[in-house]
Design a protein around this nucleic acid. Structure first.
Lengths: 191, 191, 191, 191
DNA sequence: GATGAATGAGCGTTCATTCAT
DNA sequence: CATGAATGAACGCTCATTCAT
């Protein structure tokens, strides 16, 4: 097993276990065990558990963004762009339930809150696409004139909730329902 | 201190500490300490920490429902009823941030998922009011014809997200924004 | 076993093990084991290992000082007072080899150095008797006019070295040798 | 880098780190890192950490003895020879604090005790010069008639104590104090 | 019934040593 | 030979739970 393979195994094992059992339900020893490496090995790649958690999140973002931006056309009208991003995001979550569950664990933790605070209050962005889209929508008077944070809540709140319900088996989303859901989100934010 | 007083003190202390620090940041000894009782005493009232957590949730619901149902008029049109419930819920969260934070911790935990599963799949209800409202809305063709679970997500997803952002200080909700937010939720679910 | 008994057992076990194997050779688990208590129990009495080490030292001083001050007569001439303290100290070490070995471990550690720094540079004393004695001796022109620190080294350096050699079995000190050694120390510091 | 250079780098790095942080504060990986070699490489030159520690001590002695024996004249009277050796030793410690700190770490460890035991009880010498000097002194009735071990304690105890205090900054030794200190040691051992 | 001291399994992390490259 | 990634036993410490008082 090569060097990068080991790091990858650790990342995979950690993602799985944390997604499934939460941060506290995924001891380092269990992660090491599932990854097929020694307990100390994790610490070659990640300074400590906190860093592992943060890098897992970064890794996830790096996988997620390219996918939802595929075939994204900046020239299209705002509604179409929102539909593209919303459905792509929801589809990604459904197809990558581990990633989604990890994302939830991360958001619902001190790390996630801090990360969010930095993003909203600080200048360092990442989710620019959505922010740009919403700011455009407001200035073009296509979207409701509400604080950005609330528009985000109206758009992503349902997407995350619906993705979770699908993954937990409370509902089964097919392509039709995906589109219907994102359209409903659009109804929520559009003027 | 009477028997019921003791139980109440434990419940209050546990709610505060868990809301503030999460399940894992609130050891039983710390809860006992803040409640002004012995560590062993908690176990007279709650079989173990898991049970305490679950009963805390039940207690919270019992406080929450009477408040949001105050002045709730079954005879009003569906839109008005939704606005009443939605704004009341959001107001309650804002005014009782501890309750809200606890609710979030609970939902984002194995207990919460199991609880939800029972509610949605099983027959035992509780959130009947919303379920009734939404089912009425669908049959009266006022609401979109979507699975109940999705309507819930469209309505509650943003409410929870917005409440959290307010409590974390990312946005400040006044009465106007509360109403605007719930109206936007209505736009999302209405036909 | 009563509450205080447990603390005492821990203190005794820790003293023995640290005296014998050094701080790093005396894991908390081993101390707990020898004390006949659970590993967690130690932490009821001592916040952490560092605190345990420091309190062990305090305990030791509280045992040591009364013994060497027994029958100590402030009115006697300086030489006699020095002989009293010196021989008493050396006797104590020989009769309480565990205490001596612990003292050495403590002095030869960051804790000990810091403790020493506080004592010499700060105002908080404890070894006042010796300091007073030496300062008196200097001002009465009985002792050499050297910095206190050096006088301490001349007096205690040999005492500690000789105690260690006795305990390790490199020499066997009887009462005659004890007196001869302290007299030699006196020769070192006296004018 | 040649074979001997590598060994030297390891020795130098180990001495520095152990002198500064103690045996337990100087992991092999850190030593390797500072020496600019691979961690495994150390094990080509030293069987394990224990052996490294012991050889470091031997190296130190090999550096120390030539220095203090420089201009040492066997024909001079005993007092003068003691003064030469004592002041040379103290000066060496002051000028080579790393060596001194290492020496202390070593003496205050199981290795050091074992080493001492071999030297005193066994036949293999090394400190012959001092032993010879003291035995001469006793037979010429210049020194007190005490066991050699005690004479050693009276002579070296203060030297080590005073060197430590200087290095820790508790006193500042200039040439005058160095001589005064060694003269005081002489007063301690002389008849 | 109420207490809180005692427990010990389990946690995150370190590091001397090995061995495939 | 030299390397440094990999190992896993061992560390200090926490905390849900029990039970003698």
């Amino acid at each position: 097993m090569s060097k990068l393979d080991k790091r990858d195994e650790v990342v995979k094992a950690a993602l799985e276990l944390i997604a499934e059992h939460g941060f506290h339900g995924a001891p380092m020893a269990m992660i090491a065990n599932r990854a097929g490496v020694g307990a100390g090995t994790i610490y070659r790649y990640f300074e400590n558990k906190e860093v592992l958690i943060a890098e897992l999140y970064r890794d996830l973002e790096e996988r997620l963004f390219p996918v939802i931006l595929e075939k994204y056309d900046q020239e299209k009208p705002i509604r179409e762009k929102f539909m593209h991003l919303g459905t792509a995001l929801l589809r990604y979550f459904i197809e990558n339930p581990l990633d989604f569950r990890y994302l939830e664990q991360f958001h619902n933790s001190p790390f996630g809150v801090e990360h969010r605070r930095d993003k909203i209050l600080g200048e360092k962005e990442g989710c620019d696409i959505f922010r740009d889209l919403f700011e455009d929508g407001i200035s073009q008077q296509v979207l409701k004139e509400l604080p950005l944070v609330i528009l985000f809540a109206l758009a992503f709140g349902p997407i995350l909730a619906v993705a979770r319900d699908h993954i937990l088996g409370f509902v089964t989303l097919d392509e039709g329902l995906i589109i219907a859901t994102i359209e409903a989100c659009w109804d929520g934010i559009r003027r």
